[in-house]
């Protein structure tokens, strides 16, 4: 029996693991909507950060299984129960991924720099008090700190480092996360973006955004820690008289 996406009745569960929900379904729908491109892309290495129940990585592996049979899948979660549940979900569908219990991709950054062709992230995006972020158990699946951005803002520079030249990032965001600002920040790193799926439910409005490196976009920022002063500096550096007239300047 072969399925196009993971079947809910075959998805394993645990009281401390986030079950597939509207955001998971929207992310899988985005991957399905982009499937023609993914099949042409023929990713060698796909990573899901925060795999939870395993619904998304299992679905991705099922989608690509026939036409891109040799893709290597890696899935991470900081919740050990989630990683075990993901293993069961993968096995129930007859697909395979390498699993690692870790914070985002800690331990993989050095060796996988510039090697990831597809990165899929359904981050903890719910605005919560900062001290709820990164707690053990199921809360780590949603607690996103101020504006729900605490974990997202850590993931963006990591994604930039890990993605290959042709790499793609699919990211779930909530309107409260200010997705247009996320797109602007990624643009400063040289990425174009597109909303693949937009979905409003009773409780939240979700955007699934795809990012890819666009050679037309020149990265303007290396770090975004101090956007105001940085952008001012980069504006100044564009004035040719400034460069020419001050040979001692480091701008």
């Amino acid at each position: 029996m072969s399925y196009r996406t993971a079947q809910i009745r075959l998805v394993s569960s645990h009281p401390e693991v986030y079950e597939p929900c509207d955001d998971s379904f929207a992310l899988v729908d985005a991957l399905l909507a982009d499937l023609t491109n993914l099949l042409e892309h023929k990713p060698s290495l796909c990573i899901e950060v925060g795999c939870g129940s395993g619904y998304v990585i299992t679905s991705l592996a099922l989608m690509l299984k026939e036409k891109v049979p040799d893709t290597y899948y890696v899935a991470t979660d900081m919740n050990p129960d989630a990683v075990r549940v993901t293993r069961e979900t993968l096995e129930a569908h007859g697909v395979d991924a390498e699993l690692i219990i870790t914070d985002i991709v800690s331990g993989l950054e050095k060796r996988l720099e510039g090697l990831v062709d597809v990165m899929v992230v359904n981050p903890p995006y719910v605005p919560t008090p900062e001290d709820e972020v990164g707690k053990s158990g199921i809360a780590s699946a949603w607690a996103g700190g101020e504006d729900g951005r605490a974990v997202i803002d850590r993931i963006l520079p990591i994604a930039d480092t890990m993605l290959s030249e042709r790499g793609w990032l699919y990211l779930v965001t909530l309107t409260a996360n200010n997705p247009s600002q996320i797109c602007r920040q990624m643009r400063e790193r040289g990425y174009a973006s597109r909303i693949v799926v937009q979905r409003s439910t009773d409780e939240e409005s979700l955007h699934i955004i795809k990012f890819w490196r666009d050679p037309e976009i020149r990265p303007s920022l290396k770090e975004t820690t101090a956007p105001n002063s940085e952008s001012l500096l980069s504006q100044f550096s564009r004035f040719s008289f400034w460069k020419g007239g001050n040979s001692g300047g480091s701008l």
Binding site: R87, T102, D103
Partner: peptide
């Protein structure tokens, strides 16, 4: 354990 490395610090 069970084939899964735990890299949590």
């Amino acid at each position: 354990n069970k084939g899964i490395p735990n890299m949590l610090l």
